[in-house]
Design a protein around this nucleic acid. Sequence first.
DNA 1: CGAGCGGTTGAGGCATGTCAAGAGTTGTGG
DNA 2: CCACAACTCTTGACATGCCTCAACCGCTCG
Lengths: 245, 245
Amino acid sequence: MRPEDLPEIRHLHLFRDMSEANFSALMASSYAQLFPPSLDLIRQGDPADFLHIVLEGTVELYAAWNGRECTMAVVRPVSTFILAACIRDAPYLMSARTLERTRIILVPAADLRGMFRKDAEFSVAVVDELAACYREMVRSSKSLKLRNSRERVASYLLRQSQLAGNVAGYTLPVEKRLLASFLGMTPENLSRTLRTLEADGVKVDGSRVIITDREKLTRLACPDRLIDGIEPLAEHSGSSIPSAG
Amino acid sequence: MRPEDLPEIRHLHLFRDMSEANFSALMASSYAQLFPPSLDLIRQGDPADFLHIVLEGTVELYAAWNGRECTMAVVRPVSTFILAACIRDAPYLMSARTLERTRIILVPAADLRGMFRKDAEFSVAVVDELAACYREMVRSSKSLKLRNSRERVASYLLRQSQLAGNVAGYTLPVEKRLLASFLGMTPENLSRTLRTLEADGVKVDGSRVIITDREKLTRLACPDRLIDGIEPLAEHSGSSIPSAG
DNA sequence: CGAGCGGTTGAGGCATGTCAAGAGTTGTGG
DNA sequence: CCACAACTCTTGACATGCCTCAACCGCTCG
């Protein structure tokens, strides 16, 4: 691990408040690794050996069943994933693969579990992080069950605009194929939906999004802070797609 | 609160390991309440003032958006719900209503938050509970995205049989209307699906379920421990529908 | 340059939702 | 105790959202 990584990790909500000694101890048993694009990091069902911290690059969390596959989340720096499996010492429920060249810190799950019995501030941070992940998952589930695909796309486009500071134009942070899977639809259906949304105030050309009539798009999307709101976690810098326990 | 309630609450995973003094302190500020059926306990969006513990009866957690509504979970004794919102001091993401006459313990959220900074064992238990809830939500989301409604129904029926001890016959624990909403489909569609499932090894008459060909049903449902598995929490006695953070 | 991949478009089909009606059940109030 | 209202569940007819399959374009990268 590079020495310059430590401050960045230390700055994470999860590690910010723990004692210096405990932080050092945890980092001492951890190590960094650099992965090429499209590499499988984790296979669902495997035992949870390491908490993963993304320092650079992008990671996709996905799930598979019976030959089908879907994207569950996309993780960007600096944040962690599969905390819950590590805590519970249980098998991963999701798989993970890199989307580009990615640098990751691996923290042994056993050390992690030992640490939050030892450091009260750390355990408080873990609780808060997990609660945030849980709530993000509830939001995602609500969106799936209460909205049709057209409404999900509209909300997503609107939310991305908000994350970028309510700008009218921005670039899609992920491939459309992946976005479709995340939103629970086929690439073909997303493509068609984007076409028809031009009549509702948003134009998408390649990966370029331009909101032409925010009011109209908002009327369609009916954004709701109990679905599209952001769980406040200081360093969860606006990820392209909601996050990742 | 009745004195005989305390042992039952104390037996909950969440409170089992904390110190006697801290448990008493927490209970001192809590109180029990008895609610009639079909009563709204919580409205989504409201601030999270109390952790709820179901002692008797049944509670439905549901979500609403834009005039639509869906069931997210059903909570049965003895377990808790909306822990995550209390921890984060954030608005509820789901609403809750009683399905029958229900007795509930209300634990002030502020005391809860104070306590897990004070009692290490308690905070470990909270972490574990939240991680379990998160994982249950991931399972539910996977089921929604990877399976069609027919497969979801088949898995559900099979899982209920397992929870009852791999019996061939059992009674549906919830109304079909509610089950349909939980599984992300309309009552009409559930009704039709159950009819067609008779050809695949399960017969449903009223609320009575009889598995006539377990192997055939299993081939259709493809049960997967990473979706249908049970997050081990000693006192989470087999709830009718996965649980409830 | 050709292979592979992402994206788009069209045609067609299936799954699922919508609307409507009726049977059976439950709960309630006269 | 009965009558009525309200509700669940079911079934049918119909509409439509979404998926599947296939072809094609353009781009990237060996």
